[in-house]
Measured scan of single mutants.
Amino acid sequence: MSGIALSRLAQERKAWRKDHPFGFVAVPTKNPDGTMNLMNWECAIPGKKGTPWEGGLFKLRMLFKDDYPSSPPKCKFEPPLFHPNVYPSGTVCLSILEEDKDWRPAITIKQILLGIQELLNEPNIQDPAQAEAYTIYCQNRVEYEKRVRAQAKKFAPS
């Protein structure tokens, strides 16, 4: 494992614990031996107030490669969400998460999670990743928002 990646992720964890947006979660997972795995984080993004996503808490896994922060983490909703920019596998399609697009090593975990929260309610229809959600979003916004509200209710924190 890269010392650069681990040191950056340790800084990220410290900064997150000191200050993070209300309702968001970002925690490194534990290895079988109980030690912390900084390369694999369990996160959760709350649906934004005043949107059909409100009330939901959407679980996301963030996986970092050894060359982080040169390369972005892979962000994957578990379980996958109904959304035009979420692949059926759950992987998020967002330009700041793509090395050859808008990724920059200075982007923080907090910025990534806030960017994904923004994307939930403002899909990028130029870059669809899920045919069904994309089609319904474009053709029947009322039905799309109904499905999103049902999903938010399903993923409401207990």
Score class of each variant (00 low, 15 high):
P84E: 02
D33P: 01
C93P: 00
F22A: 05
F82N: 01
E54Q: 12
P88E: 15
K154P: 01
P21I: 01
R147V: 11
R17C: 00
V27S: 08
L94R: 00
S70E: 10
M62A: 09
N37K: 13
W16M: 02
P32F: 06
A44I: 11
K74N: 15
E78W: 11
P88K: 11
P32D: 15
K30C: 04
A150T: 12
L120C: 05
N140S: 10
Y144H: 03
P80K: 11
I4R: 09
L81V: 12
Y68V: 04
V25T: 07
F24G: 07
K59M: 07
A106G: 11
Y68S: 04
Q151N: 07
G3I: 10
K110G: 05
L97V: 14
S70G: 14
R141G: 07
V27Y: 10
P73G: 01
L81T: 03
I125S: 09
K76G: 13
W53F: 05
A15Q: 14
A106D: 03
P21R: 00
D102G: 15
I116M: 15
T91E: 14
C93N: 03
G23S: 11
V148T: 04
W16R: 01
P84R: 02
C75D: 03
K154C: 00
R17P: 03
D33A: 02
A133D: 03
E145L: 14
L113N: 05
A131E: 09
L38N: 00
M62G: 03
G55H: 13
G50C: 09
R141F: 12
M36Q: 03
I116V: 13
R61K: 13
I112R: 07
A133G: 07
I109E: 02
A150S: 12
Y87Q: 05
T135H: 04
L60G: 08
A133K: 04
L114C: 13
G115P: 04
P80V: 07
E98T: 08
A156Y: 08
A15C: 13
K18A: 05
P32G: 12
W53L: 00
H83I: 03
L94W: 05
T29G: 12
R104A: 10
K59Y: 10
Q111G: 15
E54Y: 07
T51P: 02
P32V: 11
P21D: 04
K48W: 01
C75R: 04
E122A: 12
V92F: 04
R104D: 06
N31K: 11
I116P: 02
P128N: 03
E118D: 13
I45M: 13
I112F: 15
V25I: 15
F82P: 02
A106E: 04
T35W: 03
E122D: 13
D100W: 05
P72M: 00
Y68R: 07
E122T: 14
E54P: 01
K14N: 07
S89V: 07
C75H: 03
C138T: 15
K65E: 15
K30V: 10
P88N: 08
N40H: 14
R141Y: 10
A26F: 12
T35P: 04
K65N: 15
Y68F: 09
R149H: 10
K154G: 03
R17Q: 03
L97K: 02
P123C: 04
L94M: 04
Q151C: 07
G56R: 01
S7I: 07
L94V: 15
E118V: 12
A152W: 04
Q139T: 12
S7V: 11
S71E: 15
W103S: 01
F24L: 04
K153E: 14
S71R: 08
P157C: 10
I4D: 15
P69I: 01
W103E: 00
T51C: 13
I125G: 02
C138R: 12
V86E: 00
P73C: 10
C75A: 10
W16P: 01
V25G: 06
I112G: 06
L6G: 10
G47H: 06
L119S: 05
T108K: 14
Q151E: 04
P46K: 06
E118A: 09
D127S: 08
S158L: 12
R61V: 10
F82Y: 05
A44L: 11
V27M: 14
A106I: 07
P32N: 13
L119T: 01
N85E: 06
V92H: 01
F155N: 15
G3C: 12
K30G: 08
L38G: 02
K110L: 05
E118K: 10
A26D: 03
C43Y: 05
T51S: 13
R104K: 11
F24T: 04
P157R: 08
V27G: 08
E98F: 08
D19R: 04
P105G: 10
E12W: 05
A15M: 06
I136T: 09
K110C: 06
K146T: 13
A15H: 11
L6A: 10
D102Y: 09
A152P: 01
N121M: 12
G34V: 05
L9E: 07
G56K: 05
V142N: 15
C138Q: 11
Y134K: 04
A129V: 00
P79L: 12
M36T: 00
D127N: 05
M39T: 10
H20T: 03
E132V: 08
Q130E: 08
C138S: 13
P73L: 04
C43K: 02
P88M: 13
Q151P: 01
P69H: 02
L9C: 09
D102C: 11
E42F: 10
Q117I: 07
V27P: 08
P123Y: 04
L60M: 12
Q117R: 11
E143S: 13
A15V: 11
N85W: 03
T51R: 00
N124V: 03
C75F: 15
K153W: 06
E78G: 13
C93Q: 05
D33I: 03
D102L: 04
G34I: 06
P28L: 07
L94H: 00
T91M: 10
R61H: 10
E143T: 07
M62S: 04
A152R: 01
R141L: 10
S2W: 02
E54I: 08
I112E: 04
K14S: 04
K59R: 13
V148Y: 03
R147D: 01
F155H: 09
Q111V: 14
L119I: 05
A15T: 13
P32R: 15
F77L: 06
G90M: 10
P123I: 04
A15G: 10
I96K: 04
S71T: 10
K30N: 06
F64K: 03
V142D: 15
W16E: 02
T91N: 11
S89L: 09
P128I: 04
K65W: 03
L114Q: 12
C138N: 15
L57Q: 11
P123T: 00
L60N: 03
R8I: 00
L119E: 05
R13K: 04
Q11M: 13
L63E: 15
G3N: 09
K76W: 12
K101M: 08
D66S: 10
R147F: 03
L120R: 03
I107N: 14
A44F: 03
A150I: 14
Q126K: 12
A10L: 10
L94T: 03
I125R: 03
Q11Y: 13
A156D: 15
Y134C: 07
W16H: 03
V86F: 12
T108H: 14
A129F: 00
L38S: 01
P79G: 14
K30M: 09
D66Q: 11
A150M: 09
P21E: 01
I96Y: 05
T35H: 06
S89D: 13
P46C: 10
F58N: 01
N37D: 14
R8L: 15
I107Q: 11
H20C: 05
G90F: 02
D67V: 09
L60Y: 09
E122S: 11
G90N: 02
F58K: 05
Q11A: 15
S158A: 14
N124P: 03
P69E: 01
K49Y: 09
E42W: 08
W53E: 04
V25W: 07
E12P: 02
G23T: 00
L38H: 01
S95N: 14
L114H: 12
Q126V: 14
T135C: 15
Q139G: 07
A133Q: 03
M1L: 09
C43E: 07
G47P: 01
I107P: 03
V142L: 12
E99H: 07
K153N: 14
T108A: 15
T51F: 05
R17T: 01
A152Y: 00
V142G: 13
Q111C: 15
F22D: 06
L97Q: 05
P128C: 08
A106S: 14
Y68P: 03
E145S: 06
R104M: 03
